[in-house]
């Protein structure tokens, strides 16, 4: 019997899930945030379907408050692998009056994404959306199935989850409903980094230590940008930082870091005293912040 590393098992499981999605659905899509988890998903999808074309487009929900580095990376990746890209703009949802732009010091368009996402899903008739969420990220996510059903309102109903047995994935849905699919559910943050190292996966420069102007607010470092409302209490500092997760500029905090390579990032995470979600402003709202957003169709 050949020896397989745990990364081999995780990879095999993820590829199996991606192929089940392509096999069971008419119009699947891969939700691409520009973060390391969705970049890893794209790498896994290429392994699953090459030399064929990816059987789904990449879908990006653009808050308009992105890191320029993330958008440049997205466009270069799409070009390189010859994938289709669908972009849903939060600005469109605001212009259509479906959502209201939040104002004030802590304003973020992060929560508005759910509306734009559901509209994009409906407009394109997507019946399955592949996402890079992991169960180790957050308590509500730890409860979610790999094939996670969404009703016609796009809601997750945590108390009505279908049993999910062995590695048999029930993708049966009605018209108007859709499935969220999470191929890397069983990966941890460190597993993703070890896999990135092993496979030589390229990432946006944001993930590695660089000098940047930051806003020091409530003990967190936010990248300084015009998207963030500042007042006299905010202190602007220049720091050597990197990002552990990459969301929109208003809700992703940086960590001070010296890690410039994947190896150094791995060492840093091993020694870290907080989880990566600790750098997400959007999760600090309440004990059930993620559960509440997921029920409304969030990623």
């Amino acid at each position: 019997m050949k020896y397989f590393d745990y990364l081999d098992y995780l990879e095999a499981e993820a590829i199996h899930i991606l192929r089940e999605t392509a096999g069971q659905f008419e119009r699947p899509a891969l939700l691409f945030s520009g973060g390391k988890d969705s970049i890893t998903l794209v790498h896994l999808a290429l392994k699953a379907f090459r030399p064929g074309k990816l059987p789904f487009p990449l879908v990006h929900i653009d808050t308009g408050h992105n890191f320029p580095e993330a958008i440049a990376f997205r466009d270069a990746l799409v070009e390189k692998i010859g994938a289709d890209l669908v972009v849903g703009y939060v600005q469109d949802s605001i212009d259509q009056g479906k959502v209201v732009e939040p104002t004030g010091k802590y304003a973020s368009r992060n929560a508005l994404q759910s509306v734009t996402l559901l509209d994009t899903i409906q407009a394109h008739g997507f019946d399955a959306c592949i996402g890079g969420a992991r169960r180790d990220e957050e308590k509500a996510r730890a409860k979610e199935r790999i094939f996670s059903h969404r009703d016609e309102f796009g809601q997750w109903q945590p108390k009505k989850q279908r049993p999910e047995l062995w590695n048999i994935y029930n993708g049966s849905i009605r018209k108007g409903e859709h499935m969220r699919v999470f191929p890397i559910s069983n990966w941890t943050e460190l597993d993703v980094w070890h896999y990135i190292l092993r496979e030589g996966i390229e990432l946006p420069s944001l993930y590695f230590a660089h000098r940047r102007e930051c806003i020091l607010r409530d003990g967190q470092l936010l990248a300084n940008s015009d998207f963030i409302y500042k007042d006299e209490q905010d202190v602007i500092v220049e720091k050597k930082v990197r990002f552990r997760t990459v969301g929109d500029m208003t809700c992703t905090a940086a960590v001070e870091s010296e890690a410039e390579t994947v190896e150094q990032v791995i060492e840093e995470i091993k020694a870290a005293k907080t989880t990566e979600r600790g750098t997400r402003v959007d999760d600090q709202v309440s004990e059930a912040a993620m559960e509440d957003r997921k029920k409304q169709g969030y990623f």
Binding site: R135, D136, E138, K139, A140, R141, A142, K143, P158, K159, Q161, S185, N186, T188, E287, A288, E291
Partner: peptide, 21 residues
Amino acid sequence: ITDGLRDERQQGITIDVAYKY
């Protein structure tokens, strides 16, 4: 640490499987 849903914490019971790593 493991009871992730609002109802679970309120009722102090586990409703669904939670995965931990």
